[in-house]
Design a protein around this nucleic acid. Structure first.
Length: 597
RNA sequence: GGCAUUGUAGCUCAACUGGAUAGAGCAUCGCACUACGGAUGCGAAGGUUUGGGGUUCGAAUCCCUACAGUGUCACCA
């Protein structure tokens, strides 16, 4: 069992009965609107009566009154109700909520669906180029993709995390040619640099040289275009790409050596992030497959060939354009590769029902086209493929530009967060008796929680702003705030270990207790919402509110000091449940909970 | 220019998908408590939801329009 029968469900069916009995009417599900009662009114749940006002030919107040009385007969736990305008506010008694809570404590895995009870979903995220290090934008991508994977798992799906590594193409050749021309023979070992940083350095080097050469050529009278086409280093890069495609052994050796450095660097970064992958795809493998698929599609009439030999698809019938899928020289492009990768993935995982692509919204159009193509090629799962499109992370001065040096490096920002966590923790001075490695781990957990929460609490669809100067907060609506709330629950529970007996309390509830219970009961709905909308921010908001409710409760109700033992046990059980739920939801966001901080 | 997308407190974000008096955090000001862990709680102030029309019992949300930001419109990825 994932959940107890909710108050919503109860009300829902009771409403149907009321309409049968009082008005001899059937009501459709869509007519029934139940929402939480707003704070300024008295009640727990509110039924909106407007949809029926016309039909019944009565005033909203009269309809509300009548339904309210009917509902009271159906559900004895409805202690009282009031009608304000067309809103029927229902107040359930304390016993009802006490009971609901007790039912939850008996569940094994409240809020979660049984593992692997639903079809497999593949989630692609990260998918970096191999010519430069990861930056803040990647962090949003990676945390988002990881979290969505975990959300699907929590909802019972089998999940395979994949990425496709863009390991070939002109951009890698640029780093390679710059490295060769430098003649320094630098390696990560010799330079002491992280592999991805080293390769990134040569990418920047390339750009510098290129610009210098272009400037020189222009000074000697060439047009900008000609200069760019004739810059020696650009020619070198292109030549290298051709050699690569010809499988020139030396070029291939250099290529795999430098890519290897990058992978080593990425692995370190992924590890710090706390993310992983089940299966990697390399563009250098899949682009050939893509070509095959295009050729097949050409035979089947999905694609057509233009006079110059390039291959196209006509999507004008679907409101899109014509699109090239294979160059006239027969080489693969981005979308060719994507077609191949998709086909290969569904071949590798025939039980997968869909594939989620975590890719920035600048590629919205690309994925529209891709999914149409996949469908035309006869891939059944094409309709269920989903582009998890997310907005850019902007800096105060605008978009990040790697060439202008305005990127926020992933490793740097993570290290910085950890450093801040360390400073705050030392200031607090609550960690005596902890070993240095434990402390180090704790600082890491806290720093990462600030960063992850910061990036995940925003609706993925939207662009968001990151201000390095103000950096990331540790107070208020933040990861560390939630961690602190969790730590507090654990601090309390540690003192009563083994003391938790059966729940026996049936008395009145404090307002903050009712609030807390109601919030806890919303967990399954929050998970559903997050799954349906591919949106971790739903869970971030849910958890933040829960912790606030708990803090409120904690401030106003004695737990350990409560003299009435039944009530004390009840409050301890509440505390425990809050801790478990927070840990669960944060785990899905990839955020670890410390026991002390 | 076409298409897509966004515009909510000084700043960063919410708003149960059309519901009641638009909510949080940060920043500002004030208060609480021998603290079960203060990385706390409570409160004040802060809004013509970019402007203008429309749809209806009811609009930040849907439609039209103007303005502003962003993305995209490559045989780049």
């Amino acid at each position: 069992m994932k959940n107890v029968e909710t108050a919503y469900q109860l009300l829902h069916s009771a409403l149907k009965n009321v309409f049968q009995k009082n008005f001899q009417m059937e009501v459709s599900d869509s007519e029934i609107q139940i929402q939480k009662t707003r704070k300024e009114f008295e009640g727990d749940l509110t039924v909106v009566t407007f949809p029926w006002v016309k039909k019944l030919g009565k005033s909203p107040e009269a309809v509300g009154q009548e339904i309210g009385e009917g509902l009271q007969k159906e559900i004895s736990s409805i202690e009282r109700f009031n009608v304000v305008k067309g809103f029927l506010n229902l107040h359930f008694n304390d016993a009802f909520w006490g009971n609901q809570f007790q039912n939850v404590t008996h569940l094994d895995n409240f809020g979660l669906a049984p593992a692997n009870s639903k079809p497999r979903v593949m989630v692609e995220y990260a998918s970096p180029n191999t010519n430069k290090p990861l930056h803040l934008g990647h962090l949003r991508n990676i945390f988002l993709g990881y979290s969505v994977s975990e959300i699907f798992k929590a909802n019972g799906h089998s999940v395979t995390k994949v990425q496709v590594i863009n390991d070939r193409g002109i951009h890698i050749c640029k780093s390679m040619i710059a490295w060769m021309e430098s003649g320094l023979n630098e390696t990560p070992e010799s330079s002491g640099m992280k592999g991805d940083k080293l390769v990134g350095k040569y990418y920047v080097e390339y750009d510098k040289k290129f610009k210098g050469q272009v400037a020189d050529l222009m000074a000697s009278g060439l047009s900008k275009e000609d200069a760019e086409a004739q810059a020696p280093i650009a020619l070198g890069a292109r030549e290298m790409l051709l050699k690569w495609e010809d499988k020139d052994p030396e070029t291939l050796a250099l290529w795999s050596k430098m890519n290897g450095w990058v992978y080593d660097g990425f692995d370190v970064t992924y590890k710090t992030m706390g993310v992983d992958f089940d299966k990697l795809y390399y563009e250098s493998d899949t682009y050939i497959l893509g070509k095959d698929e295009v050729m097949k599609g050409l035979e089947n009439g999905v694609f057509f060939k233009k006079e110059d030999g390039s291959i196209w698809i006509d999507l004008t019938g679907e409101g899109l354009d014509e699109k090239v899928v294979l160059r006239k020289d027969g080489t693969a492009m981005y979308i060719t590769q994507d077609i191949g990768t998709a086909m290969l993935r569904f071949r590798d995982y025939p039980d997968a029902s869909s594939l989620v692509y975590t890719v920035g919204n600048e590629q919205d159009y690309h994925f529209k086209v891709l999914f149409k193509i996949l469908k035309k090629l006869g891939l059944e799962q094409a309709e269920k493929c989903f582009h998890l499109s997310y907005g850019m992370v902007e800096l105060p001065e605008g978009k990040m530009k790697s060439r202008e040096g305005t990127v926020v490096d992933a490793d740097d920002i993570m290290a910085e967060m950890k450093q801040v966590a360390k400073e705050v923790a030392e200031e607090q001075g609550k960690l005596e008796g902890m070993s240095e490695t434990e402390k180090d781990h704790l600082h890491h957990i806290i720093g990462m929680s600030a960063l992850k929460y910061f990036l995940l609490r925003v609706d993925p669809k939207k662009n968001m702003l990151f201000d390095p100067k103000e950096s990331i907060d540790f107070n208020g609506n933040t990861g560390p705030f939630i961690q602190y709330g969790y730590v507090r629950t654990q601090a309390i529970l540690r003192k009563v270990e083994g003391e938790l007996s059966e729940l026996n309390y049936t008395g009145e509830l404090h307002e903050t207790e009712r609030q807390l219970i109601k919030h806890l009961l919303d967990l399954p709905a929050a998970f559903d919402d997050a799954t349906n909308t591919y949106n971790p921010s739903v869970l971030a908001a849910y958890t933040y509110d829960l912790v606030r409710d708990f803090n409120s409760f904690y401030q106003q109700c004695a737990i350990l000091r409560e003299p009435n033992n039944d009530l004390r046990v009840f409050r301890l059980a509440l505390t425990k449940q809050v801790g478990e739920v927070v840990k669960k939801t944060m785990n899905v966001l990839g955020i670890e909970m410390p026991e002390r901080m």
